[in-house]
Computed example of a mutant assay.
Amino acid sequence: MARAHLFVAAACAIVLALATPSLAGDPDMLQDICVADLMSQCTDFAADPCLIPAIKLNGFPCKANVTADDFVSAKLKNPGNTNNPNGAVVTAANVETFPGVNTLGVSMARIDYAPGGQNPPHTHPRATEIIFVLEGTLEVGFITTANKLFTKTITKGDVFVFPARLVHFQQNRGHGPAAVIAAFNSQLQGTQAIAMTLFGATPPVPSDILAKAFRVNNGVVNAIKAKF
Rank of each mutant, 00 (worst) to 15 (best):
T67D: 12
P203M: 03
F71S: 07
I55D: 02
G25A: 11
V89I: 15
L38I: 13
A182L: 08
A24C: 09
A9N: 09
S40V: 09
V72M: 11
T123F: 00
A201P: 05
P79G: 11
A11F: 07
V221T: 10
T144A: 06
V140T: 14
N147P: 03
V106Y: 02
A211D: 06
I224E: 11
R173H: 05
G105W: 03
A223C: 03
P120H: 05
A93N: 02
P21G: 12
A213Q: 10
F142N: 04
L16E: 12
S186P: 03
K227D: 12
V89F: 00
Q118L: 13
N86I: 05
D32P: 07
L138N: 05
V221I: 15
T67G: 12
T153F: 04
E96T: 14
K63W: 05
G80A: 10
A193C: 07
L149W: 05
R110Y: 01
M39Y: 00
R110A: 08
I154D: 07
G157W: 02
S107I: 10
V140W: 07
A182K: 05
A36V: 09
C50P: 05
V66T: 14
Q41A: 02
K212V: 09
Q118P: 01
V133E: 12
I55W: 00
V159Y: 01
F150V: 14
C50G: 08
I154Q: 07
I111H: 01
L138C: 00
P53Y: 00
D26P: 10
D112A: 02
T128N: 06
A179F: 01
C12V: 14
A36L: 12
T128R: 00
P61T: 09
T145C: 07
A13N: 03
T191G: 12
D44E: 11
V216A: 09
V95W: 00
N94W: 07
P53C: 02
N94C: 07
G176S: 13
V101P: 00
P120M: 12
Q31F: 00
D158C: 01
A178F: 00
A4E: 14
G80L: 11
P120I: 13
T43G: 02
R126L: 15
L51P: 01
Q170V: 02
H124F: 09
I33C: 13
N222P: 01
T155V: 14
M1Y: 06
P206I: 12
I224G: 04
L16Y: 03
V72G: 00
D69R: 11
V140C: 11
